[in-house]
């Protein structure tokens, strides 16, 4: 396990050592849109040809609105779901076709912290047995070795080990999420998928859990795929950010670069719409009109064109190319270079 120093400056990025690589990954679902049994099922393109590489030790933030496919992408990336097409390489190993015992072994290296802390904890198990379960099953720990290790894990996530006998229901929201995190790090995984891991928490508790996640990443050398819809929190924890819209990552850049210099009109709208607790900032609001189209029936050409303030004729005809704005900044837009800063 590599120890990784605290990264809060863009300059300290680790390069060229990807832990997880997705290449042209798609996840399509067949959906019945009609009650007529002879009506053919439609294809819902939740994730549509996404390529992405996550470096060892970084936090990759994935933002997007509901229906953008960010959660589906996360689930496919850690193989909770199988991709429809494309390849996924984890730690040098191709995992997109893994199944059975082999897949379960891979999964131990990639743990998940879920959005709903209460829902993700078995209500009939104590906190201690929830955290200890992976250790019992996979490392065969028993008795005092197990309780010591559980106590250590609880301390490392800021929980009082004397609460090991408590049921999840007896804990506060923040404490429950700490249990979820302790369970996730119990087996020393390499990658953690944090799927809206702080979104359901109270504002004052969000900050605590965010700090804990950052602290654990540095202490344990973890890599995060951090999915969220709240931009401020992503800016706080991620080194790189990908913006998803209707199944595609439309822009990827280093965090500071993305927030200071957004290239895609959707990213800009997202940034402009994100409320800031400062009433003096009456910024130029880019109000997007309408709602995202359904992924069942994607627009031709660029998928954002139906809501895009800059849309032109070419956008309806040709899918936008991937434009390399800088070595670390790519964007899918016809006007990427000309759209100004």
């Amino acid at each position: 396990m590599t120890a990784v120093v605290g990264i809060q400056d863009a300059g300290e990025r680790l390069d060229g050592d990807p832990i997880l690589t997705l290449d042209e990954v798609s996840k399509h679902f067949q959906v019945r849109t009609s009650t007529n049994p002879f009506h053919p099922a439609s294809t819902l393109r939740a994730v549509d040809g996404v390529s992405l590489s996550i470096e060892r030790g970084e936090t990759f933030g994935l933002v997007g609105e509901s229906g953008s496919g960010k959660s589906t992408l996360g689930r496919v990336a850690v193989r909770l779901d199988a991709p429809t097409s494309g390849t996924i390489t984890f730690d040098g190993q191709s995992i997109e076709n893994q199944g059975g015992e082999q897949l379960r072994r891979t999964r131990r290296q990639m743990q998940v912290v879920f959005q709903d802390p209460l829902g993700s904890l078995n209500p009939r198990m104590s906190v201690g047995s929830i955290i200890g379960e992976p250790l019992r099953v996979f490392e065969g720990l028993r008795g005092s070795t197990l309780t010591d290790r559980v106590a250590e894990l609880m301390r490392s996530v800021g929980l009082d080990p004397s609460r090991a006998a408590a049921r999840p229901r007896a804990l506060s929201g923040g404490q429950r999420q700490r249990v979820g995190i302790a369970r996730a790090i119990a087996l020393n995984p390499r990658l953690i998928l944090a799927d809206e891991a702080v979104s359901a928490l109270d504002v004052s508790v969000q900050a605590q859990i965010t700090n804990l996640l950052v602290d654990l990443r540095e202490r344990l050398g973890l890599t995060y795929l951090f999915i969220a819809h709240g931009l401020p929190i992503v800016r706080q924890v991620a080194q790189r950010v990908g913006v998803m819209y209707l199944g595609r990552i439309v822009e990827v850049a280093d965090t500071d670069d993305l927030f200071a210099n957004p290239q895609h009109p959707y990213t800009r709208a997202l940034l402009a719409a994100s409320p800031v607790p400062d009433p003096t900032v009456r910024r130029e609001r880019i109000i997007l009109h309408g709602e995202p189209p359904t992924p069942l029936n994607l627009p031709s050409g660029c998928r954002f064109r139906t809501r895009c303030p800059m849309a032109a004729e070419v956008c309806a005809q040709v899918a936008p190319p991937v434009v390399q704005v800088s070595p670390t900044h790519t964007v899918e837009c016809h006007f990427a270079e000309t759209s100004g800063i």
């Binding site: 379960r104 131990r108 998940v112 879920f114 078995n122 992976p134």
Partner: peptide, 9 residues
């Protein structure tokens, strides 16, 4: 789902 993702049989 959490138990599955933990890799339990």
């Amino acid at each position: 789902e959490a138990a599955r993702s933990a890799g339990f049989a």
